[in-house]
């Protein structure tokens, strides 16, 4: 009961911190929306991509923008380990009877929820302005999108925690997160379809866990009666296994919560 109350208190505290940090809240949502508006419209009108439905790159890009929001959000949320360490409040957490796992769980669950909410806001803001087919209908499509966004954020939270356990400084953490996650975004189908790519890129796309999240999001909202690149069943099977495994790995590795590494 005490651990649950402590996890809940840390969860609430981290949510409150994000709500107060307006710049973090807005930038995680606005950056993907700006990419949608400028890159989407620019490519749609400037290059007129013939492989996309009605040449509408903006609609295609929504799934990638949602995935990108999750990446930004998980990076910002996980950076709170460093902020808490540097502000000193981590010492208060560690001097309590709670285990390091309880502290991590409370903070990471808050990060997951924030990431899910931000990603869904991007989808909700974009949806009225682009041409979606909603092949399963809007309620079911939103449910599929929400489920894939939850799994994606759980996976990213695990990756971020595992990295934070190894990296001493916040600057280093941001650098590694960007280096690790942006290439994954590039060949996930977020910016261009992965079918018809050179073999080496297609192999990378198949090995990339983000590809399955983007595929599920495309199927939920954008796709026009197709089965997608992998198919919804494989998307959720892969995401489910990888998300649980990576999150468990992240929780198993205690981040460097103090400067001495204890």
């Amino acid at each position: 009961m005490s651990s649950f109350a402590a996890t809940s208190a840390l969860f609430t505290r981290d949510l409150r911190a994000v709500v107060r940090s307006r710049s973090q809240l807005y930038s995680s949502i606005l950056t993907p929306l700006l990419i949608l508006v400028f890159l989407g419209n620019g490519v749609s009108h400037g290059l007129a991509p013939s492989k996309l439905s009605a040449g509408n790159f903006t609609a295609y890009l929504v799934a990638g923008a949602v995935a990108m929001t999750a990446v930004f959000s998980s990076t910002f949320s996980s950076a709170s380990y460093y902020r808490d360490r540097d502000s000193g409040i981590m010492r208060m957490f560690l001097s309590s009877p709670q285990s390091g796992r309880t502290i991590l769980l409370g903070k990471s669950l808050a990060g997951v929820l924030i990431g899910v909410l931000q990603a869904m806001v991007v989808l909700a803001v974009a949806a009225p302005f682009v041409q979606f087919d909603w092949q399963y209908g809007i309620p079911a499509g939103l449910l599929v999108a929400a489920a894939s966004v939850v799994l994606l954020n759980v996976m990213l939270a695990g990756i971020a925690q595992a990295l934070a356990s190894r990296i001493q400084t916040m600057q280093g953490f941001h650098l590694i997160m960007n280096l690790a996650l942006f290439p994954l975004l590039f060949f996930s189908g977020a910016f261009f379809p992965v079918d018809g790519l050179p073999m080496w890129l297609e192999v990378l796309a198949r090995a990339n866990p983000l590809s399955y999240a983007v595929d599920a999001l495309e199927l939920a909202a954008y796709a026009d009666g197709t089965g997608g690149y992998f198919g919804l069943g494989l998307d959720f099977a892969v995401m489910g296994v990888i998300s649980v495994a990576v999150y468990a790995l992240g929780l198993a590795r205690t981040p460097r919560l103090t400067w001495s590494g204890t």
Binding site: G88, I89, R91
Partner: peptide, 10 residues
């Protein structure tokens, strides 16, 4: 602690 264990935003 020798240095405050506090979050200035709370």
């Amino acid at each position: 602690f020798q240095e405050n264990a506090q979050d200035p935003l709370m």
